[in-house]
Computed example of a mutant assay.
Amino acid sequence: MALSVEEHRPTIVVMGVSGVGKTTVARLLAARLGLPYAEADDFHPPANIAKMSAGTPLDDRDRSPWLHALGGWLGGRAQAGTGGVVTCSALKRQYRDILRTHCPGAFFLHLSGGHGLVEDRLAHRAGHFMPASLLDSQYATLEPLQPDEHGVVLDVAHTPEQLVELAAALLRPVNGDLA
């Protein structure tokens, strides 16, 4: 799915359950395309971080201000013409809809992988507040991208570098190159 020429500085949400590599891929993709980058975790209020650190899943009320803040960041990048890449689990369609209210042209790059692979990655990840015990709740919440949503699903069995190249090829303007 190539973008039109008018969308040559895309706004991209790298989405998926915890442990699929959103941060790694988003940073690499932002660098590859020369776009600003933001980490969704930085937009969480302290109460959300405390709740997740205690092993309690967030509810929709917890997520709402966080999603609006992320959407505002994306919308600001779109209005400025700089484009941008942000990570966000964006597990439910209604969450993606909130992001789109701020940035209608957002492209969703859904990183997807089998439960066992992702669980193994989480078990070996250090220094993150999201415990592996919440992975099941994330898979249960996940609503895959629908055909009318602007985005693509990529399998995390690929290396982060391969995922970035696949995404960059998909995001390349019809008659030009982003990077």
Rank of each mutant, 00 (worst) to 15 (best):
F107W: 14
Q79M: 10
A26T: 05
T101V: 10
A78L: 07
R100N: 08
L171T: 03
N175K: 11
G114I: 04
T141G: 13
A167R: 01
A40Q: 05
A47T: 08
T141N: 10
H128M: 05
H68Y: 08
S133D: 04
P173R: 12
P65C: 11
S53E: 06
Y95K: 01
G81H: 01
H124E: 05
Y37G: 00
K51E: 10
L109G: 01
G127V: 05
V25N: 09
M130K: 00
Y139R: 03
L74I: 01
A78R: 15
L67A: 11
D120P: 03
R63D: 09
A80K: 00
S112H: 13
G55E: 09
N175D: 15
G116F: 01
C88R: 10
G113A: 07
M15H: 03
L145V: 07
A47S: 05
D41T: 02
C88L: 05
P10F: 00
F129D: 10
S133Q: 10
P144H: 14
Q138P: 14
V152E: 07
V164I: 06
G116I: 01
D97N: 12
L28H: 08
E7N: 14
A78S: 14
V20Y: 01
M1L: 10
C103V: 08
G55C: 07
L33D: 08
E39N: 13
P45V: 04
P57S: 06
D155N: 13
E149G: 00
P46S: 04
Q146H: 12
L166T: 13
G75C: 06
L166A: 11
T159K: 00
A123Y: 01
L3P: 02
G71L: 11
E161Y: 01
E143S: 11
Q146E: 15
V152N: 02
D60N: 12
S137G: 07
P10T: 05
A132V: 14
Y95D: 08
A157M: 01
S133A: 15
V13I: 14
H124N: 15
G151F: 05
L122N: 10
A31T: 14
G151H: 02
W73V: 00
L91D: 06
M52S: 07
A167E: 00
V14G: 02
H158F: 07
L109W: 09
H8C: 13
P160Y: 00
G116C: 05
D177V: 12
G113N: 03
V5H: 13
V20M: 13
H128P: 06
H150R: 15
S64I: 04
E39S: 15
A30T: 02
V86E: 01
F108W: 04
K51F: 10
T141Y: 03
P10R: 09
R100S: 11
A69I: 03
R100T: 07
G116P: 03
E39V: 11
E161A: 12
Q138C: 13
G113M: 11
R93G: 00
D177S: 13
A126C: 06
G176W: 09
L171Q: 09
P104E: 06
G114S: 06
S4Y: 02
Q146I: 06
E119C: 09
L33C: 13
